[in-house]
Design a protein around this nucleic acid. Structure first.
Lengths: 323, 323
DNA sequence: ATTCATACTGTGTGCGTACACGGAAAAAAG
DNA sequence: CTTTTTTCCGTGTACGCACACAGTATGAAT
């Protein structure tokens, strides 16, 4: 070892990989992207990463669960643990707290390294978390909405989701949002927070929004906490839209269309493709390269407007480094 | 070949690299980062990429030229071409048109693949260009400045650089900037463009800016076309700064400090680290992987404000995928 | 001192590809 | 038809490392 140090010997990863001649099996457990434009993106990132590292003997299987059904997550998790052998690593999205903790415990017991993307669980014993900082994401949302708000006006934090999902996540976003405005001294903004589950029904959403407008006559900004900002813009009248600024998340097609005609003002990009990509790459770094992996990896919160949207779309599609 | 296709045979890059047992020598020619905070970043990206691909037998040497002296570029270029043998590829920043064309011609004659970063030269015969879209960058700058401007006010396009550098680049930025405001219908903004070479002398810059303020009493936005926005913010009085919005480029320390205390309003990040990184990675893809390389690769124009700056800094420092 | 278990060391082979080389076959020239 | 040139093909070796195995040395136990 001393002589190695002295001569500056570094093992040749290429030769090591060739000689190793083993396959490392990774299973990814993510929400079913069917009918959900957002979850298609981490999937693309995972597939892109696979192309980059498959020569190193990495094999990835993607399993899906119903994003509204904790039982389906649980069932798939058990199936993966029991039926995959050998199982060298797991990548998953812990959007259900309870069920995810069970999976984490099972991983710890079996000593299976695991990576979480998109949603974080504290003290998980995971190899790493890759995704956004929810609190800061709320702060940024507030800042962007603030551009269009005047003194005394009202901002609405709108959560279009089923109640079971991502409670902590949402709580942090709201805290960040309120934190920003509590520090703005030159104007006072009234903040309202509402949840609405029946976002699939446009008429009901429309009625709901009209009710909010009636209750808050000076409502002029809506912060939509997930990728469904387009549903809000579609459900509002054009006259109201002129006045009301909308900030939402994620570069999915309906959002992009509305961004381009100025009905959505800002989109925050949380790099979902990158999440999937880096998730696999971090496992690769751990399994093959034996590198240390940073346990908390917050991705940038990109501010997307009409003028720079094209570049983000291109990057998501083409720009991964294919090795 | 038919059977290979039928069986889905793909050569194993790992084994190929091992068997090849050759070194590919790349030389990078970039501006000397000494005393220039910006050019340190592509250098970091190049070094990061080197760490990722050195096992594949890639060797990178970085050569520097004086960013204000075309002759030094020319001299270094000749030196590289004559003294490096074998020379398998060149990466460079063509900030001097004439001298860069000479280098491009020499590369074509010797059949040396080359990559340009940061500044583009059209019809260069290069493998690829990686950097920003100058025109769109100006459009985005205008959009960001527009947030703080009112009807009838004046915006200043300020070029703090020597006259010889990057003429085309700057022209495109200005065109983009003007293009945006020509399409804004609800307010009229008066646009002035000025160059100032003696930006190193704070007192002279201060006097120059005072002159601009006197000539344009309603001046309330400055678009600094390069990374020297901090020099403007430092040279202005606090009273003026309250009113005047500043949009600049690049995440260098003095800009960051002024962004954090709201003296600079927006910074556009043109991903300089990524430019160096991808420059090398694209040569790697070409030399080792024998992949097709996209000839025009525009990097995203990130909008950076106080609320999301931390993530970009982290990404620049840690986030490259180390293989 | 002998036996046995354990630790250490060196050799050989394989991972999938590149490349040099010699011999055979095919094509071109005489 | 023979000779020369060119093309083609198969074999062998090498790339740097992992790992199995045999052989040797070391130490503990009898």
């Amino acid at each position: 070892m001393e002589v190695m140090e002295e001569l500056g010997y570094k093992p040749n990863i290429i030769a090591r990989t060739l000689a190793n001649n083993k396959i490392q099996r990774i299973v990814a457990l993510i929400p079913d992207p069917t009918g959900d434009l957002y979850w298609d993106q981490p999937k693309m990132g995972i597939e892109k990463a696979l192309r980059a590292v498959q020569h190193y003997g990495i094999e990835v299987r993607i399993a899906y669960f119903d994003r509204f059904d904790p039982a389906s997550f649980q069932q798939k998790a058990i199936q993966i643990l029991e039926e995959t052998s050998p199982l060298d690593a797991i990548l998953f999205t812990p959007i259900f707290q309870q069920e995810s903790r069970e999976l984490l415990d099972a991983c710890k017991e079996r000593e299976i390294p695991n990576v979480m993307i998109n949603t974080n669980i504290e003290n998980s014993g995971s190899l790493c978390y890759i995704g956004q900082d929810s609190f800061q994401s709320g702060v940024l949302g507030a800042r962007l909405l603030d551009f269009g708000l005047h003194d005394g006006e009202t901002a609405l934090i709108l959560n279009l989701d089923k109640r079971i999902t991502n409670a902590k996540h949402l709580q942090d976003k709201e805290s960040g949002f309120r934190d920003y405005f509590s520090k703005v001294t030159n104007k006072h903004i009234h903040i309202v927070r509402k949840d609405f589950e029946e976002f699939g029904d446009r008429d009901k959403l429309r009625a709901f929004l009209q009710r909010q407008l009636a209750e808050n006559p000076r409502l002029s900004g809506i912060f939509v906490t997930n990728s469904r900002a387009y549903k809000v813009a579609e459900a509002l009248d054009d006259a109201d839209l002129e006045r009301i600024k909308i900030v939402g998340y994620d570069l999915i097609q309906p959002n992009l269309d509305l961004l381009k005609c100025n009905k959505i003002n800002f989109i925050i990009n949380q790099n979902p493709v990158q999440q999937g990509y880096l998730g696999i790459m971090n496992l690769f770094n751990h399994l093959i390269m034996k590198h240390e992996v940073a346990p908390l990896q917050y991705l940038p919160l990109d501010i997307v407007v009409v003028e720079n949207v094209e570049y983000y779309l291109k990057r998501e599609l083409e720009f991964q480094i294919v090795l």
